[in-house]
């Protein structure tokens, strides 16, 4: 059965509802599902709880969903690049839950792997530990964190096939791979859909079982912090 859909809005049809939880892949603007984010905005669903390492920039990436006030709560590790975010948060219009980046990644991995809770050293003795059960292992304190799941994961990959097998490009893999496992439904946009059988099974990063829908779509791939070096002769 082919998992290929025509376009982003087609691929989200029937999956969205008010108050839903969405995982959105990417690190900064690297490896975000630009077309699916835009399509989610166009559905006009509201009160979204959005799990994403960052919150995009003004007017781009998740910044688009902030502008339209569709996000009720963000679960993130770093949100420094977005003025509209800051305005809504300081105005009390937006809830925010900070997670250490590794804890966020592991909560997503655990959620996808059927692990409801686990213990980490990260954040012991800090504000992050408040209200969380602690336990001593071999004389050291650890805090309990819980697995995360989402109604929908929207992720970005480099190449994929009609079975949903995926390969990511460079550092655009980031949160996309774990999020693919933690969505009740995972929709992926790829730079290129390739024929089934053309990806080497040894090199597949995300097996198709984690992917329900796939589209091929062009991305702008905006660079947040373009940094170059001088050519020396």
């Amino acid at each position: 059965m082919s998992k290929v859909y025509k376009n982003a809005s087609d691929a989200l049809a029937g999956l969205t509802f008010d108050g839903m939880t969405v995982m959105s892949g990417g690190f900064g603007l690297c490896g975000i599902a630009e077309n699916l984010i835009a399509a989610l905005r166009d559905t006009k669903v509201k009160d979204i709880t959005c799990i994403s390492n960052n919150a995009g920039v003004d007017g781009f990436g998740l910044g688009q969903l902030l502008e339209t006030r569709q996000i009720k709560k963000m679960i993130s590790s770093y949100v420094g690049e977005n003025k509209e975010f800051e305005r809504q948060f300081l105005g009390g219009e937006l809830e925010l839950e900070f997670n250490p980046q590794g804890t966020l990644a592991e909560r997503i991995r655990a959620g996808g792997a059927g692990i409801p809770g686990f213990y980490v050293k990260t954040g012991v003795g800090t504000a992050i530990a408040e209200g969380k059960p602690t336990r001593d292992f071999d004389g050291e304190d650890y805090i309990m964190e819980t697995g995360l799941k989402a109604d929908l994961s929207i992720i970005k990959a480099w190449k994929g096939d009609a079975q949903g097998n995926l390969i990511f490009n460079s550092t655009a893999r980031n949160f996309n791979a774990p999020m693919a496992t933690a969505g009740k439904v995972t929709v992926v946009e790829v730079d290129e859909i390739v024929p089934v059988g053309s990806l080497d099974p040894n090199h597949i990063h995300t097996p198709g079982i984690f992917v329900q829908r796939i589209i091929e779509a062009k991305c702008e791939k905006r660079i947040e912090n373009r940094t170059v070096r001088e050519k020396t002769t």
């Binding site: 603007l29 690297c30 990511f168 980031n174 791979a177 905006r222 660079i223 373009r226």
Partner: peptide
């Protein structure tokens, strides 16, 4: 510059012969 290849400060970077990529978890 490759938009898919950045560091944690979101700066564009390059690979070395020994480089490897992996997910956040």
């Amino acid at each position: 510059e490759n938009p898919d290849l950045i560091n944690a400060g979101k700066q564009t970077i390059t690979t070395l012969p020994k480089s490897s990529f992996f997910d956040s978890a």
